[in-house]
Nucleic acid binder design. Structure first.
Length: 574
DNA sequence: GCCGTTTTCGGCCCGACTGTTTTCAGTCG
């Protein structure tokens, strides 16, 4: 069982416990455990398989949870959860997704109105029975009906690329106002998480009311959901919800820190403040009633004895320890990137020619690229067989002569077939400058076969890098069941690099596994997998995830100059 | 349910907004 699945069981358990009215700290313990497991680079199942393992060494895992994890790994089940599920109708989880409905209200609906399903809930609202309940009213009833629509329609997280575009549109509009002194996106979007559930925008304004009005009037805003003096929540036409908060100047840094999160990171921050006899909230750091700091984020971190921590690292995944020891990494940036080593052309499923891609890459300041079209197995993309590939490389060489100022590698994105052989013969692969091996088909194969395919590819002397290792597509397709520890060891042994695919729906390696690959000393290549000139702009999203993984420019192979990169490649092959 | 050079009990982060309340619980981030 994969870590995410184990975490999901604990999250569901926490939700049902909450409905039951259990001790809130007990509920939190399950949620904390879920986060710990989710953020673990190695598979919990592998940990359990090790002879003298100790799960209680993990943060937030004690004797009880360790036993529950063992049970899940061995049986695939969590009996107490199954028992708890039996006490509630299956639709409760969906009801909890409705904005405004939390565990207390849902429990009241179940107990007093005997609601069994989402359908029951709709009927009860329409009959006016919900409004009659104590603690409910007409407005609540109406908002439940609207929430039901919403939950059924979307309620999903959106890609970081989508969230970023929406946030920038709003922020740029607010910036037009003379009264707006500062405005910035906070939240998971600022932390550059791969998907965002909503948007948080923070502003300093001399006229908060006018700022609120401006947001409400923005063409992308579909509905104002809540509006106070300092806070407004709106729903955008895309379905994404956005919070705007207007704060006083002396609180801007504290508010930015607070609303950037993550929740887990902030809990540690406030605990550190407490330990120093201080109180930290979105208005600043306080000693009793006295304001101590809050104008900038750096001031807030300094007040709790830390250097400023980059937003991408704020997940309580070890950044506090690094900050305390003065060992925060100098994170890789987009400006560090010199090459892009995965892209397609009209030879297969790209929309631009070799020359157009080269010119577009050059215009973006890149010094070298690899043209890596598909191999024959990818028939729907018109994948290349050996003969067409050799001709394609000749065409690339012609472009090399025509376009100066950028180096172009003759590459290939070669499929690792379901039977663990490569889609092209060794003789043609040996002629390539750059070989990416990837899984496209048979992603649902059992773990053993997936591993066999990856390991066989790693052992092939012509393979330089494994591309998008899991094959996942965010929000639509889970990745293959990869044993990452084994993958990393083998990649290290054979000197093969690993790709962090920057395409916004892939971001694969993800941040957790990219960090683990770095720990193994494996060079990471951030590549766009561009299928058009515009696709080259995805590099920033790959860099974002690399930063979340704590990678420096030294960890990323394509920050090297072309000469240095070629040396690395030559060393790998010898 | 977890955790601990303030240890094995008694803590566990903090505030805004809403709707329903006559002073606050629930929800949310």
């Amino acid at each position: 069982m994969q870590n995410a699945a184990i975490a999901a069981l604990f999250d569901e358990y926490a939700e049902l416990l909450e409905l039951q009215g259990a001790n809130p700290f007990r509920v939190r313990a399950y949620r904390n455990a879920a986060r710990t497991i989710e953020n673990l680079p190695q598979s919990v199942a592998d940990l359990v398989a090790a002879p003298d393992h100790d799960l209680t060494a993990l943060a937030g895992i004690g004797k009880d949870l360790a036993e529950k994890i063992e049970t899940i790994v061995h049986t695939g089940r969590l009996p107490p959860l199954e028992e708890l599920r039996g006490q509630f109708p299956p639709d409760v989880v969906q009801m909890l997704r409705i904005p405004g409905l939390g565990p207390k209200k849902v429990a009241a609906l179940l107990d007093q109105l005997h609601i069994r399903s989402v359908g029951d809930l709709r009927a009860a609202c329409e009959a006016g029975r919900v409004a009659a309940l104590k603690g409910f009213g007409k407005k609540t009833e109406q908002s439940i009906l609207e929430g039901l629509e919403l939950v059924e329609a979307s309620g999903r997280r959106v890609l970081l690329s989508v969230a970023t575009a929406a946030a920038e549109a709003i922020v740029n509009d607010l910036r037009q106002l003379a009264c707006v002194r500062q405005v910035e996106v906070a939240g998971s979007c600022r932390r550059r998480k791969e998907t965002c559930g909503d948007l948080d925008v923070l502003a300093v304004s001399t006229d908060p009311a006018a700022t609120m009005v401006r947001l409400a009037a923005h063409p992308e805003v579909e509905k104002v959901l809540a509006r106070g003096d300092t806070k407004q929540r709106v729903r955008l036409r895309s379905g994404l919800e956005l919070d705007l908060r207007v704060v006083p100047e002396p609180s801007y840094g504290a508010a930015l820190q607070y609303f950037t999160g993550s929740k887990e990171h902030n809990i540690v921050m406030r605990r550190r403040a407490q330990e120093r006899g201080l109180k930290l909230n979105e208005y600043g750091v306080f000693e009793g009633e006295r304001y101590v700091a809050g104008r900038t984020e750096a001031d807030v971190y300094a007040a709790v004895g830390l250097p400023w921590i980059p937003p991408e690292l704020r997940e309580n995944r070890g950044e506090f320890e690094l900050a305390e020891q003065g060992r925060l990494p100098a994170l890789v940036s987009l400006e560090d990137i010199r090459g892009d080593l995965h892209m397609h052309t009209t030879a297969t499923d790209g929309t631009a020619s070799i020359r157009e891609m080269a010119e577009a890459a050059k215009a973006r300041g890149l010094k070298y690229i690899a043209i890596t079209d598909h191999s024959r197995r990818v028939t729907m993309a018109n994948g290349l067989d050996a003969a067409r590939l050799r001709q394609h490389w000749k065409d690339i060489e012609k472009v090399r002569a025509q376009v100066s100022g950028i180096e172009i590698l003759c590459g290939i994105e070669c499929d690792i077939l379901e039977d663990a052989t490569l889609d092209l013969e060794d003789d043609v692969l040996s002629e390539a400058d750059w070989v990416i091996a990837v899984l496209h088909y048979g992603l649902k194969q059992p773990r053993a076969q997936i591993q066999k395919r990856l390991l066989r590819a790693l052992q092939n002397p012509h393979v330089d890098v494994i591309g998008h290792p899991s094959g996942r597509l965010l929000g639509s397709r889970p990745g293959a069941d990869v044993d990452y520890e084994e993958l990393f060891r083998a990649a290290k042994d054979h000197g093969v690099m690993l790709e962090l695919n920057a395409s916004p729906q892939r971001l694969d390696l993800d941040d957790v596994h990219a960090a683990a690959a770095k720990a193994h000393g494996i060079p990471i290549v951030i590549s766009t997998d561009a299928h058009s000139e515009h696709g080259l702009d995805a590099m920033k999203f790959g860099v974002d995830q690399a930063r979340r993984a704590g990678l420096t420019r030294h960890d990323v192979a394509n920050t090297r100059t072309f000469a240095q990169f070629q040396k690395l490649l030559a060393a790998r092959r010898s």
